[in-house]
């Protein structure tokens, strides 16, 4: 699990909102930016939404909100912000799924093992396949396998049952593995 700080941020001396914000920003900015990039197709949009998340954190700290753990709080805010962005009308009008998974235009599946080793083509193939997942599958896969949260934590953050999380995860992994040629 790629986490830079412990869950309570190591803030034992109760610093002011400003220093607390700085600390949380330093600890989570990269992670939240990456999460937004996994959930939204456009890197520019992802950057905007990540900034939005930290603006909300700033407001929450100013208002004296006390979260038990800021890491899941930030993750949930980021998930909702990305979902809102996807749902907004202009987004729907202007956007379309970034890439359609067109197998015929991708490099062949059966190549030498050396070539396969995470070369540029494979990376492209994986990103294309990942973006072809449904938004829910993307969320579940990103939280469980990229961020490293447990199935129960993912279920809690997404407001789903553990069974649903596992089903989405199963479909996502099946789809992604097919693009690697690892599944018949």
């Amino acid at each position: 699990m790629a986490k830079e700080v412990d869950r309570d941020g190591g803030l034992k001396s109760v610093p002011g909102p400003r220093s607390r914000f700085d600390e949380l920003y330093r600890a989570h900015a990269v992670r939240i930016g990456r999460l937004c990039r996994w959930l939204l197709s456009d890197p520019g949009e992802a950057e905007d939404v990540a900034q939005e998340v930290f603006l909300k954190l700033h407001r929450a700290l100013e208002e004296g909100t006390e979260a038990q753990a800021w890491e899941p709080w930030l993750t949930t805010v980021a998930l909702n912000a990305c979902r809102d962005r996807r749902r907004s009308a202009w987004w729907r009008r202007v956007w379309q799924p970034a890439v359609e998974l067109d197998e015929s235009k991708l490099p062949g599946l059966h190549r030498d093992a050396e070539e396969e080793l995470l070369g540029g083509e494979e990376r492209t193939r994986i990103w294309v396949a990942y973006r072809a997942l449904s938004p829910r599958q993307r969320e579940v896969f990103a939280l469980r396998h990229l961020e490293g949260w447990s199935t129960e934590e993912v279920a809690q953050m997404l407001g789903m049952s553990s069974g649903s999380v596992k089903r989405h995860l199963h479909r996502a992994i099946g789809h992604l593995r097919r693009t690697l040629g690892g599944r018949a």
Partner: peptide, 23 residues
Amino acid sequence: DVERIREALFADPPRELVRRASP
């Protein structure tokens, strides 16, 4: 396989995908 997928997604998205995602 999941580890390979993870490594690929931790890297930046390929340039051609970013270009196609222009608004």
